[in-house]
């Protein structure tokens, strides 16, 4: 059986678009988590869902989509920008989360509820400055 390349392309691009749609749904869920969680540190976890599941993966999928579907001069242009942006989101987003969490803890914002807070214990005992 010979697979028609046209059909194959259509199936592949539809799958890519469906994946990007899942990313949009994850964004909505992340926004929901931002509202439902009542603690700053818990909201950071919802934020990560929005950044990785809601921006990083859709950007990769849309980059591949535009490389396949768009006409020649613009396909690699749009696709390349999407892939580079995804890469930089992946390496810079954790730096932002880390900085904001560290600043919150240094300004004495207590995680609540929390089973243990080793960082506060170590700050109070003077091991960590």
């Amino acid at each position: 059986m010979v697979i028609d390349p046209y059909v194959l392309t259509e199936v592949l691009t539809t799958l890519l678009l469906m994946g990007a749609l899942i990313g949009g749904i994850l964004d909505v869920i992340a926004a929901l988590g931002m509202i439902r969680f009542k603690d700053f540190y818990l909201r950071l976890h919802a934020l990560t869902v929005g950044v990785i599941g809601g921006s990083f993966y859709p950007l990769i999928l849309l980059g591949l989509y535009s490389m396949i579907k768009l006409p020649y001069p613009s396909n690699y242009y749009v696709g390349g920008i999407a892939l580079t942006t995804a890469f930089f989101i992946l390496i810079t987003a954790p730096a932002g989360s880390h900085a904001i969490a560290r600043a919150a803890h240094r300004s004495k914002h207590v995680p609540k509820p929390a089973v243990v807070d080793r960082l506060r214990e170590d700050r109070e005992s003077g091991v960590m400055n």
Partner: peptide, 9 residues
């Protein structure tokens, strides 16, 4: 940090 559920403080 990039996996949801854990953040390095």
């Amino acid at each position: 940090t990039n996996t949801p559920g854990t953040v390095v403080v």
